[in-house]
Amino acid sequence: MTTDADILRQITEIVARELAVPAESLAADTDLRAVEGADSVRLLRVVARAEQTWDIELDDSDVFTVSSVEQLAAVVREALQVKAA
């Protein structure tokens, strides 16, 4: 069972890896586009890695509007609920 905390932790790890920043520097409300080194390509890689990790497909309308780690985690949670339904 993947908990909300697990999802947030794994999203944080993915963001840290793809944006090459320490995970400790990221908080739930960190603005993804404000992270040093973040650009549209790297943020799309974050999305792609999340989709691969949970075998889900995120809606583009969500992908291009989320701005924080927590918001991305929420979109992943929603996709997992749809998948499980």
Binding site: V41, L44, R45, A48, E51, E57
Partner: peptide, 10 residues
């Protein structure tokens, strides 16, 4: 193939 979805990153 029944369905396929692409995500273009770069």
């Amino acid at each position: 193939t029944v369905s396929m979805r692409m995500r273009y990153l770069a």
